[in-house]
């Protein structure tokens, strides 16, 4: 980069291009693939859809939004989603980091343990939901059998609204805690060793090390993991579809399952598009909040 010294403007241009060059591939791919679908969704959300062609028909203004926002079922689905998120996310984050610390203990088999740990994520959602359903079933489930051995009655996991939500959180936690473990393991592995050695020499106990060194260093990773898991969890519907189909009643009908059913089962693509836009707005606001929160945390710890 010595040529640039003679022509400062060109060098600056090259520098700017070099900086932006890092963002360009991601931006271009996303713009190319997402621009039309998002515009289409927005357009449909303000139109009547012509089901025969799947093209926007007559412009109807805010009608679809009015229908959606006055639909008590939409709000109910949002509420169900909120309940699920409030329980599932913290549980997965906490479990994930604790387990990552456990499986990071140095011994010969830890590579295998880490590799095995990712399996729950890989099992196709239809199979994962079905296996859990099979194990929890009050009639032929393994858990029912084991409970019966110690004289306890069967739990109607999928017939009781509260238990069904519990089952969804349980299955989702089983499925996605490994993600947190995976990222947290990498986070722990990237920590600079000299800091810990210094702390050890200073005679700090592990509790102090944890709170003063490990966690502060991990804050960006924890925050990123949270945001990614949050964005993934908002969209959860396959597990609910496979395990409860949103039931009993509508107790586990999370928002994306609701939209999916309204679109592909109810053939209401225009209203679904409006719901998608509303969900996008809500997700945007909350994600913005989380991003700000994680910035504050990062700033405080560094």
């Amino acid at each position: 980069m010595t040529i640039g010294m003679k022509r400062p403007t060109r060098a600056r241009l090259a520098d700017t291009a070099g900086r932006w060059g890092f963002l360009t591939p991601a931006f271009l791919i996303l713009a190319a693939v997402l621009a039309y679908p998002i515009l289409y969704t927005i357009e449909i959300s303000f139109s009547e859809i012509d089901i025969a062609t799947f093209m926007p028909g007559e412009f109807v203004g805010w009608d679809n939004y009015e229908t959606v926002l006055t639909d008590e079922r939409f709000w109910y689905a949002l509420r169900v989603t909120l309940i699920y998120l409030v329980f599932a996310l913290p549980l997965q984050l906490l479990l994930g980091f604790v387990i990552a610390w456990l499986v990071n203990a140095e011994w010969r088999g830890r590579g295998v343990v880490r590799a095995l740990f990712i399996i729950p994520m890989v099992v196709a959602p239809v199979v994962a939901g079905g296996i859990w359903k099979m194990m929890l079933d009050p009639l032929w489930g393994l858990t029912t059998y084991l409970l019966g051995l110690v004289g306890l009655p069967a739990l109607d996991w999928f017939g009781d609204p509260v238990l069904a939500m519990g089952a969804i959180v349980l299955i989702d936690t089983w499925r996605w805690t490994p993600f947190v473990v995976l990222i947290a393991t990498a986070g722990l592995l990237s920590l600079p060793r000299d800091v810990f050695e210094a702390a050890e020499i200073d005679g700090a106990n592990w509790w102090t090390t944890l709170w003063r060194i490990t966690i502060p260093l991990l804050v960006p990773v924890i925050a990123a993991t949270f945001v990614v898991r949050w964005l993934g969890a908002v969209k959860m519907f396959d597990i609910a579809l496979a395990a409860t189909a949103g039931g009993p009643g509508r107790a586990t009908n999370v928002i994306n399952l609701f939209i999916y059913q309204e679109a592909f089962r109810g053939m209401k693509f225009a209203e679904s598009a409006a719901m998608c836009v509303v969900v996008l707005v809500i997700t945007t606001l909350l994600t913005g909040l989380f991003l700000r929160g994680s910035r504050v945390l990062e700033a405080r710890f560094q």
Binding site: P138, L139, A154, D156, W157, F158, G159, A164, G247
Partner: peptide
Amino acid sequence: APPGAKNHL
């Protein structure tokens, strides 16, 4: 119906 039938499909 058997236990759990509420959610049977």
